[in-house]
Design a protein around this nucleic acid. Structure first.
Lengths: 152, 152
DNA sequence: TATTGTTATACTCTATAACTATA
DNA sequence: TATAGTTATAGAGTATAACAATA
């Protein structure tokens, strides 16, 4: 922060939105150096993971789950297809829809990189104790309306 | 989410980084409709607030505090200058440095819009109780290594 | 008419690097 | 040599809208 050490955020730090944005920036900054993902970004790996977890999921469903714009999903999926990681299958009952699944190569990529990201996430430096990290994850899960996972 | 209602994020939800990213996306989505900021984005208002709170702060210090790239800060500040909200003053002791402060108009804009953003932030829908929001803010503050504010 | 997905454009912000002017 | 800030370019991702195919 430099200067005289008295720099202040004022009331910004009273807003959950500001704090979440700053925390995300912190995560982004830590993750950008991560070379264990074979060139994948965390966002890309999230998409592959969701397809892996939900074989046959539709294009638009993935976009909605991950809050990614449909128009941008199209671009991402094109890349995954040309990498040979994702297959599309059009629905015979509704031929507008496209169902997605991972190829064996796609599954292998997720199998290699996702555990590395998990480990990295658990070790990413922050000011919290392991117990507090657990609290934070529980609160964020509820914040987002996601189903709770019963931790060990 | 549509489909059969059994869509899963798999282990993604075990990662604080993923949850923070999703929460930030949620905030962004809620805030983009906010018309009370007179055309300002929340990021822009954050910059103005930090200058307001720390008159004379240097260009690069603002960028570091808010985790904004220096190159992009230059562009933002140009816009603020041409809006007549921010003034630059070069440091006579170190003529590379630029000190920033708000004009009366800049202060007026912050005075009008910041309270509206505060109110909006407190009302942004989420799955937490007010007490849990307080916990979340406290954990994020500590996560980021920011000084604690003693809440009422 | 509404919905699924595609394409294209403008815009925001990061990553990077070359550059000026100081120190 | 290093630091503060500027400028430029490439890329990720959003906002928006027009479009094709299908329902």
């Amino acid at each position: 922060m430099a200067g005289d050490g008295t720099r202040s955020f004022g009331v910004l730090t009273e807003m959950s939105g500001f704090l979440l944005s700053m925390a995300q920036a912190h995560v982004y900054r830590m993750d950008e150096q991560l070379e264990a993902l074979e060139g994948l970004s965390t966002a890309q790996l999230s998409v592959l993971t969701v397809i892996h977890e939900n074989p046959g999921i539709r294009h638009g469903e993935v976009a909605e789950m991950l809050v990614i714009k449909l128009a941008y999903m199209t671009k991402l999926l094109k890349g995954f297809e040309s990498s040979g990681w994702v297959e599309r299958q059009s629905d015979p009952a509704d031929r507008r829809a496209i169902h997605l699944s991972l190829t064996p190569e796609g599954k292998a990529v997720v199998g290699r990189t996702l555990p590395r990201l998990l480990a990295h996430d658990a070790e990413r430096p922050n000011g919290l104790t392991p117990r507090e990290i657990g609290q934070l994850k529980r609160l964020l899960t509820k914040y987002l309306g996601l189903p709770e996972r019963d931790e060990g």
